[in-house]
């Protein structure tokens, strides 16, 4: 089934559908079933007497909808797995049963109109949502098969493994050097040599070394916006995380600074050069062209649901659902 409607108030929708598979099965086998089902190119609402209902309409009505995940995603080795993940801000639900696998050492983009939950989902990977009052989650997100939401998991530890770059560059009011080595400092590192080596490595990886090497002791606040954002990337990777989350990292930058960051994201995923580190990058963006340029995989979200998820080229050129096509071509959202 491509789109499955939960048995719910609107029974007309669910009548002709098989029962919902468990979320795990949806991820592992969703594609195979989609292939088996006759007429899988359309929606699952085949019966003539039912009104033809688009996925987005179903979502707007509050139906439970399982997103369509392309088979190619499952062929990659997944570093992170989201299983039946729900998130509530107080009484309102921001994420509805998200199921997705994030491939290792690839760039995955989250796109969708404002309020679709892509930033909320991003912040679920390093549990930054914990800091918001009244947030409650259900389901699991696993990093190397370890559930991030287990009781035993310390969010402080987790955030060392899952770094984050914010929408607005937020260098601390310190020197450039101290900004970069901040993650080492808080981990208790004091040896000057270690700090200097780490700073140089991180600044080189973020393509900032040449610009910054002669002014390491100057305040980071004196840098341009694009430099500040690359400094924030350097700071995030100085902790040597496995995953890098980026929340619209270029939306406050001019086109040239944006281009530099995009190049950087491309390099960091290590697709071209395995020695370059190889981070698993998750990026939220409002800019469709940016998603197309920097990412290997793209997930389209709408009102807290995953709608379609697959290789970026497929999502943009040959999406499975007409809704996705409409969104990526700018016809709504």
């Amino acid at each position: 089934m491509v789109v499955q409607a939960m048995p719910g108030r609107d029974c007309a929708l669910s009548m002709n559908h098989p029962p919902i598979p468990s979320p795990d099965a949806a991820i592992a086998g969703g594609e195979a079933r989609a292939g088996d089902a006759p007429g899988a190119t359309g929606f699952g609402f085949g019966a003539a007497r039912q009104p033809k209902l688009s996925v987005l309409e179903a979502i707007r009505r509050g139906e439970s909808v399982q997103g369509h995940t392309h088979a190619a995603v499952e062929k990659e080795a997944a570093l992170l797995r989201v299983r039946d993940f729900k998130l509530f801000y107080g009484k309102s639900q921001a994420l509805h049963s998200i199921n997705m696998a994030i491939p290792e050492k690839r760039v995955t983009a989250l796109i969708g109109p404002s309020g679709c939950g892509k930033s909320t989902l991003l912040r679920s990977f390093n549990r930054m949502n914990d800091l918001v009052d009244g947030v409650r989650t259900e389901g699991t997100i696993t990093l190397r098969e370890r559930n991030l939401y287990d009781r035993g998991v310390d969010p402080i530890d987790l955030r060392r493994k899952v770094g984050m770059v914010f929408q607005k560059p937020n260098p601390f009011p310190m020197s450039i050097f101290e900004n970069v080595v901040y993650p080492l400092r808080i981990a208790g590192e004091r040896k000057r040599g270690v700090l200097e080596a780490a700073a140089e490595k991180a600044l080189r990886s973020s393509a900032l070394w040449e610009e910054a090497k002669d002014r390491l002791s100057e305040s980071a606040l004196g840098m341009s916006g694009g430099q500040q954002q690359r400094l924030c990337i350097a700071r995030a990777i100085a902790a040597e995380p496995e995953v890098l989350l980026m929340d619209e990292p270029c939306s406050a930058l001019d086109p040239i600074a944006t281009m530099k960051i995009e190049e950087l994201i491309h390099q960091m995923s290590g697709r071209d050069d395995q020695s370059a580190g190889g981070y698993t990058v998750l990026i939220v963006t409002h800019n469709m062209h940016q998603a197309a340029r920097v990412s290997d995989y793209t997930a389209f979200m709408y009102l807290g649901r995953l709608v379609e998820y697959g290789p970026t080229a497929n999502i943009f050129q040959n999406p499975h659902l007409p809704e996705t096509e409409q969104y990526v071509t700018g016809r709504f959202g």
Partner: peptide, 15 residues
């Protein structure tokens, strides 16, 4: 003090 400083620090694994 802007909240972005706090978020930035916490996101880097600071207590």
């Amino acid at each position: 003090v802007p909240d972005s400083f706090r978020a930035g620090s916490l996101a880097l694994g600071a207590t």
